[in-house]
Design a protein around this nucleic acid. Sequence first.
DNA 1: AGATTGATCCAT
DNA 2: TGGATCAATCTG
Length: 177
Amino acid sequence: MSKVLAKKFYGQNTLSTAKKLLGKFLVRRIGRRKISGTITEVEAYIGPKDKASHASRGRTKRTEVMFGESGHWYVYLIYGMHYCLNIVTEKKNYPAAILIRGVKTKTKEIRGPGRVCKYFWINKSFNAAAADRKIGLWIENSGVKIKNRDIQRGKRIGVDYAGKWKNKLWRFYLVRK
DNA sequence: AGATTGATCCAT
DNA sequence: TGGATCAATCTG
């Protein structure tokens, strides 16, 4: 049995998928080395009307991947400096994705989407690729059971421009003990 | 609080 | 084709 999450894991409701991603392993293989960590914080961007989502401006060269197949990576450069890693969710032609904002490794906790990409050596070359072993970046089942009471939710970060959409409680993170 | 940095998008 | 914007992070 493969521990790699299959496309169908991502093809359903984005909010429940976001919660289910907490506690899963993000894995990056570079040659014979592996970098991995538990996903601790995520943020959902859902549908064509979500003003906080890049997809709210419609299909463009950049956002096309959000309208595409679930289980593919959406990677973009923000502020000319930082990459952000998202996994596409829902059905084809319905734009949605989950931003990975935080990861915990054996030795350290990485908070912030730009830091996650830096730590995992992720750049735009992964954009639009399927999340699997072939490209060296995927998500695995960890076997860790996350309870609802271990999940916090809050407003999304950095989207104050998004009108009423800025108040959606679409950020989920693990309780820090 | 201010600087950084460049891809993206749309109209000024 | 120019310029404002931006799902962030760093230093102070």
